[in-house]
Design a binder for these strands. Sequence first.
DNA 1: ACCCAGGATGGTG
DNA 2: CACCATCATGGG
Length: 265
Amino acid sequence: MQITIDHLDLKQIAESGQCFRWRELGHSRYGIPSAGRYIIAEQTPDGIELDCTRREWDGFWANYFDARADYGLYIDSIEPEDTYLREAARTSGGIRILAQDPWEMLVSFIISQNNNIPRIKKSIEALCRSLGKQAEHGGIEYYTFPTAEAMAQPRALENLGLGYRDKYLAKLAQNVVEGTIDIHAITGMSYEEARAELKGIYGIGDKVADCVCLFGLGKKEAFPKDRWINRVIAEHYGGKFPTTRYEGFAGVIQQYIFHHEITNK
DNA sequence: ACCCAGGATGGTG
DNA sequence: CACCATCATGGG
């Protein structure tokens, strides 16, 4: 079905570093898995074309693409004299904050630490291929994201190229299986509560906690600061970014900056 | 061969 | 509080 929507550019989202499992099937055409579902999306002049029903769009994918939010308002709120940010929004204004699976975000962003995006994708692919379940959609074969139970099996995380992060993931998976970590409970928390709870998990600090909040818990006020963002804050904002101006959606602004940086340097 | 990566931890001053 | 070595691995 055809969706008419502005400020949604699949290519920009695919290279925005928030999703690691989109598969490029052709020019501006992607296979997208999420939470046990799968969709094929293609960019059109005034929106996107999806191989799902209206019911599936209304019930799941509209939320996934944050389609009910007005990103024009976010862009228009940018400080007019902030030429750097206006330029970032100009090159990256097609990004939306995807509502992804919290468990997948936890695992993915633990893997992301001190790592580069191509290798993050490879590690996650290896994880899914080894511990996920084989599935098929529209002739495309793929692997689902592994459950905590699968990842908690002894030696399950060996030989996947995860590096030193495997011990964080093993502990996380065990705690989720035991019930020591309750992801559903965290989903129901405020940003501040969820962030504090996430930071208590072995291997999760400020940055990863904010990524999970932003991409997995729908907390658009989260503003993850990685090396790129910190560099921009130092070079363009005198060491302090005015997040209060963008109250409630600073994470959207953060994505414009991040994408603008990694695609132009 | 070298530097770097969507950082976090544990130790030290 | 701030700094700092260390952590696996491989992309560029």
